[in-house]
Design a protein around this nucleic acid. Sequence first.
DNA 1: CAGATTCGTAAGTTAGTACTTACTGTAAGC
DNA 2: GCTTACAGTAAGTACTAACTTACGAATCTG
Lengths: 106, 106
Amino acid sequence: MANANAFAALADPTRREVFERLARGPRSVGELAQGLPVSRPAVSQHLKVLKEAGLVTDRPEGARRVYQIDPQGLGQIRAWLDRFWEAALEAFKAEVEREDPEGTNP
Amino acid sequence: MANANAFAALADPTRREVFERLARGPRSVGELAQGLPVSRPAVSQHLKVLKEAGLVTDRPEGARRVYQIDPQGLGQIRAWLDRFWEAALEAFKAEVEREDPEGTNP
DNA sequence: CAGATTCGTAAGTTAGTACTTACTGTAAGC
DNA sequence: GCTTACAGTAAGTACTAACTTACGAATCTG
């Protein structure tokens, strides 16, 4: 499954925080680490995971390395979720009707 | 963050498998465990995590306990992802134009 | 009522992971 | 060329979590 890594990547709070900061625009590793409660190497390791999950891309910019969000991994997760969305709504609707066949609880 | 547990819940492959089986319709714990490479108590523990994440609901049915998908947690994840979707696309588009300002690579 | 199903929980083990500090490599500035 | 800034990697540690077996509680069956 292609999205396996993407879910695992976003499961970690620190990684989600990094990802949310990148959503506000491309950042270098140092900029991302600044303000976070973890060390810069930790952020580097998190970025590696996000990159392998297809959630971010990076490019060298002099001595720095700039990361930004990659829509690819995000799109895979969205596609996976959408596969269940309709089924989930139907199952939920059926359950509601099973509990309340008369529709007395609008 | 409300969706924190939902991401962590779907990060585990076994839990995703359980979730996908539930997408095909409500099942009891025993039915879910059947065919999975883990024990029934393990499935019980996974269902507990999914339930706390708002991804499934359960109801007693005699001695058995039937689980089914709950759209709530799914919707929270979808909403979270959508917050970044537009930003991600824009950032990606800007990056492509930065790499290829003339549009020579269509 | 006794035995059989079905399921959740407790306890313990093991593997994975998120973090730290220390080190190495690479690009920029004097 | 030498120093400084930036970032990835290595090694080690501590914590979490996924799993197992064993057990207890609740319900159906004969």
